[in-house]
Computed example of a mutant assay.
Amino acid sequence: MFDEGQLYAPVTADEDGKVTVHLADDHPGAKDPEYRRRREEIAAPALGWQPGDPEPRVDYTDGENEIWRTVCRELAPKHERLAIRGYLEGKEALGLPTDHVPQLDEVSAGLDPISGFRLHPAAGLVPLDQFYGSLADGVFHSTQYLRHPSQPLYTPEPDVIHEVLGHCNLLANPAIAQVKRYAGEAARRCETPEGLQVVADVFWFTIEFGVMYEDGELRAYGAGLLSSYGEIEEIRGADIRAVDFQQMATLAYDISHYQPILFACDGMSELTDRVASFFAEFDDETPARLAAS
């Protein structure tokens, strides 16, 4: 299990409306005042955004677009070797630009006719029930900031590269998008924090860090792997286990390192049938049933 809040730098606003992004001391941008200023500049409109408002647009700098280009260039051959077909098909269908950071409304315009999903801006951490529950409505909350330029191939927290290159290319595959909708519906049915946490933990080991056997080879389908230049290369050296929801719901793990244990679906059907059914049938009594089985 993990605390979702560990993944994001907290974002606050004072009485005067000044927005502050609280970067951890070991964050690559912690001692860079210009990066901190830029993070706050991007976060402020997202923090004040309300559904129905136009999505805030970011005038990305040449440096930010260069980070996007670098990651797209470096990840492309890794995706060809190590990503599942369903991701590659979604990536081709969505056709994200590789030379500049796309705006959220542009990504939504591409996703909506494919899977019905759209993006809402997030300044940082979205409450667990809201983030997962919104998936039931075809809404994915996405940050808009980029990682620090000193480490373009690494981020200690989800950024727009993780959200868009990782999750949105998956959402451009309707079958995978439906699994996410089921996860959202499961979250909506939860009446206890314990039940919601199990949904989050199974989501972590599947949609975020899932792998799959395809044509006899282990490939990645988790957004966290697909957006990580380094970790995607390490999947075949991990402790690979069969899908086990009880283990996923109770396994302790460290989000600050490459995941040493990964759970592998046996082909796409195990994801779109078995994992989808787990979320579709989930309720607050599911954890007790798993423990007793």
Results as ranks from 00 to 15, higher is better:
D3I: 09
V11L: 03
D14H: 07
V19C: 06
T20E: 04
T20R: 14
H22W: 13
L23M: 07
Y35C: 07
R37Q: 14
R39F: 08
R39Q: 13
E41F: 01
A44E: 06
A44H: 03
A46C: 15
G48L: 02
G48M: 00
G48K: 02
P51I: 02
G52C: 01
D59V: 07
D62H: 00
E64R: 05
E64I: 02
I67V: 15
T70R: 12
T70D: 11
C72G: 08
R73P: 00
E74V: 09
K78N: 01
H79V: 05
E80I: 00
L82E: 09
G90M: 07
G95K: 07
V101S: 03
P102G: 02
A109V: 04
P113Q: 12
V126P: 12
P127E: 13
L128F: 01
L128C: 12
D129P: 00
Y132R: 03
G138S: 07
G138E: 11
T143A: 07
Y145R: 09
R147S: 04
Q151P: 01
L153Q: 05
L153V: 05
P156D: 04
E157L: 10
I161M: 14
H162K: 06
C168T: 11
C168H: 04
L170A: 00
N173H: 14
K180D: 03
Y182P: 00
A183K: 03
G184P: 10
E185N: 04
A186R: 03
A187K: 08
C190D: 06
E191R: 15
L196H: 09
V198F: 08
V198S: 03
I207C: 10
V211I: 15
M212R: 05
D215V: 01
R219Q: 12
A220N: 09
G222I: 10
S227C: 11
Y229R: 08
Y229V: 10
G230R: 12
E231G: 01
E231A: 05
I240N: 03
R241F: 06
R241Y: 11
F245S: 06
A249G: 11
Y253M: 02
D254G: 10
Y258Q: 10
L262R: 15
A264R: 12
D266W: 03
T272D: 10
D273A: 11
R274H: 14
F279E: 12
F279A: 07
E281V: 03
F282L: 12
F282I: 11
D284S: 10
P287R: 07
P287L: 08
R289C: 08
S293T: 14
S293K: 14
